[in-house]
């Protein structure tokens, strides 16, 4: 007899959204690609710029988490809210679209513009790339994370189709989670998936001698993302890049391949605990002597941002945002 489990609704809904809408929160392709308007990026090329919609969806995840923290996950109301775009039941008195509407415009702008900034930084370094725009699909990293491996097997075919259309040989990922699944999971699921997978950090590092020195007062501290540092082995690269910018790096007590997790991965099911872990990491990073925290992962960015205490003077930025200072100058 096979035992089946009824799992928390949030898992079903997120996986359903990915499978049906190509995004964990059912964001529309046009929303996720809005940042690229005006850049006129080609759809075909050697190097494919891949966002996976991950930075774009951050503020929505946060708003969702704020909601679920106060709602019993077993309730009907909850399932309705989580279904958001799939299912709107008026009777419950909760407007499902509210989650989307309640996202602050400033957060939406900030996270949307990360992609734009990344593109500009790479262009500034002389990289040419293409982008799938509205058609881009989420990598499915959460299907892998949350255990939906059989569904993922089917889902990745859609992703591969879009990726192949570009004619690219190399995929540059903004998120280490996407890079991780492309590198280690896709080849096991898709025959002949032989793209070269690089991260944004790799590309910047390769041309770091072209970076212009930043007039940055003070020092920064790096929060190594677990995936980037331990899975992909990228940590010295970040330090090299900052060195090329002429920016001093202070080190946290736990860093590089001993880095402490930001708490982000359990945010959806254990939001409060995730928050505690995030705050502790912020404090640990501040022990370095710098309050300017840089990371290179969308989930770390959001978890650390959320982990800052109210009125905390610490600043949390993605490396992409930090590098963009040089582009503007």
């Amino acid at each position: 007899m096979t035992m089946k489990n009824k799992m928390p609704m949030v898992l079903d809904i997120i996986s359903d959204n990915i499978i049906k809408h190509g995004n964990p929160l059912a964001l529309k392709g046009s929303e996720a690609a809005a940042w690229a308007k005006g850049l006129d990026l080609p759809v075909k090329g050697e190097l494919l710029f891949y966002t996976g919609g991950e930075y774009q969806m951050l503020p929505f995840i946060d708003s969702l988490v704020k909601t679920i923290t106060h709602v019993d996950q077993g309730s009907k109301v909850f399932s309705v809210m989580m279904g958001v775009r799939n299912l709107i039941e008026k009777k419950t008195g909760i407007n499902a679209e509210k989650i989307y509407a309640s996202v602050l415009a400033k957060d939406k702008d900030r996270y949307n513009s990360v992609c734009l900034k990344a593109a500009k930084v790479l262009q500034g370094l002389g990289y040419e790339f293409c982008y799938a725009g509205n058609e881009e699909l989420y990598s499915g990293a959460l299907l892998y994370e949350l255990g939906y491996l059989e569904d993922m097997r089917e889902y990745v075919e859609n992703v591969v189709e879009v990726v192949k259309k570009s004619g690219a040989k190399t995929i540059v990922c903004l998120s280490p989670h996407a890079a991780e699944v492309f590198k280690f999971v896709y080849p096991k699921m898709v025959e002949g998936f032989d793209f070269e997978i690089v991260t944004f950090v790799d590309l910047v590092w390769q041309r770091r001698d072209k970076l212009t020195k930043l007039q940055f007062p003070g020092a920064v501290v790096i929060h190594d993302s677990c995936r980037l540092a331990r899975e992909l082995g990228i940590h010295q690269e970040l330090r090299d890049i900052l060195d090329s910018l002429g920016v001093e790096v202070k080190e946290a007590p736990r860093n590089r391949d001993w880095t402490t997790c930001c708490g982000g991965p359990i945010k959806i099911l254990f939001p409060e605990l995730s928050h505690v872990i995030g705050s502790r990491r912020v404090n640990e990073l501040k022990e370095s002597g710098s309050e300017h925290i840089l990371t290179s992962c969308p989930y770390c960015l959001s978890a650390l941002e959320g982990g800052r205490a109210k009125g905390d003077s610490a600043i949390v930025e993605d490396l992409i945002e930090f590098l963009y200072r040089g582009v503007r100058a």
């Binding site: 994370e145 949350l146 677990c226 331990r230 899975e231 391949d257 001993w258 880095t259 402490t260 997790c261 708490g263 991965p265 359990i266 099911l269 254990f270 605990l273 872990i277």
Partner: peptide, 11 residues
Amino acid sequence: YSCLRCGRCVE
């Protein structure tokens, strides 16, 4: 599901 899968235990 409460494991972060952060991998530091492996280190």
